[in-house]
């Protein structure tokens, strides 16, 4: 595996506000086709780290980033990088599904239509393939023109996934995508993740150790050390969960399972 260059390389990333260091010296490699999990206590900076990968932190004023992230060797933070094109290559799913107040079809096409300039036929094809990939097609194929707000929260989250997939990103970021969902929808999303990983690279933040064990290949444990979030341990999921080396991680695991 180490022969292949990583798809995402986080290099000495540091995120801070005016007053406080949030993340210190984050260095990680994420490889193509894996599901990479970020675990750790609340407030350790997992979401901040995730949002640094597609520079969504840029939208929040007062956050400063040092270091770099490389997407297939290309710098995400370089001055001449087109942030919007980076974001089309690194899709994102949020904690709460964010539905645009329009039809199901238009929601799926929301990014794809604008970013990829698809023709009419291609649009229809893309809607179906994205909805199939997110396991929503059978539930909504007869009501694509109906408002997306009528869907259940679990369906909305899968719709958001379809919307992200329709842009055909190389990497998908997920920020606790199941924390707002009921167990059934959670199971559906997890199943989906396992199916998606053959074609996509996924970075997922999760609070749920069981979920991490079920779906991820690799894990990084983010926790506060000396006032800022750091990666205390990372590696293959099985090894990391069964034989944690870091005492804080061991403690975290016993308390959250």
């Amino acid at each position: 595996m180490s022969e292949v260059p990583p798809i995402l390389q986080i290099q000495k990333l540091e995120v801070r506000t005016h007053a406080r260091l949030l993340l210190r010296n984050i260095t990680l490699s994420i490889f193509e086709g894996e599901i990479f999990g970020l675990i750790g206590p609340s407030g350790a900076g997992k979401s901040t780290l995730l949002r640094s990968l597609n520079r969504l932190n840029d939208l929040l004023p007062g956050l400063y980033v040092k270091g770099d992230v490389l997407l297939r060797g290309q710098s995400v933070y370089a001055r001449d990088t087109d942030v919007n094109s980076i974001r089309t290559r690194i899709g994102m799913l949020f904690q709460q599904p964010v539905i645009f107040p329009t039809t199901i079809r238009e929601n799926v096409l929301f990014g794809a239509k604008r970013v990829l300039a698809l023709g009419k036929v291609e649009q229809t094809v893309r809607v179906e393939s994205a909805l199939r990939e997110s396991s929503l097609w059978d539930e909504v194929k007869d009501r694509l023109q109906q408002p997306a707000s009528a869907l259940s929260v679990g369906q909305q989250q899968r719709l958001c996934l379809a919307r992200a997939l329709a842009v055909q990103p190389e990497v998908l970021l997920m920020d606790e995508p199941t924390s707002a969902l009921d167990p059934r929808s959670t199971a559906a999303i997890e199943e989906l993740l396992l199916r998606l990983k053959t074609r996509h690279t996924i970075v997922i933040v999760t609070h749920n150790i069981t979920q991490a064990r079920r779906v991820t290949n690799s894990l990084a444990f983010v926790a506060i050390q000396d006032g800022a979030g750091e990666i205390l341990e990372h590696g293959a999921t099985k090894a990391l969960l069964s034989a944690p080396k870091n005492p804080i991680l061991a403690d975290y695991l016993t308390h959250s399972s």
Partner: peptide, 9 residues
């Protein structure tokens, strides 16, 4: 806004 920007708009 964030969701739209995350799609690359």
């Amino acid at each position: 806004r964030r969701a739209a920007r995350a799609l690359g708009l």
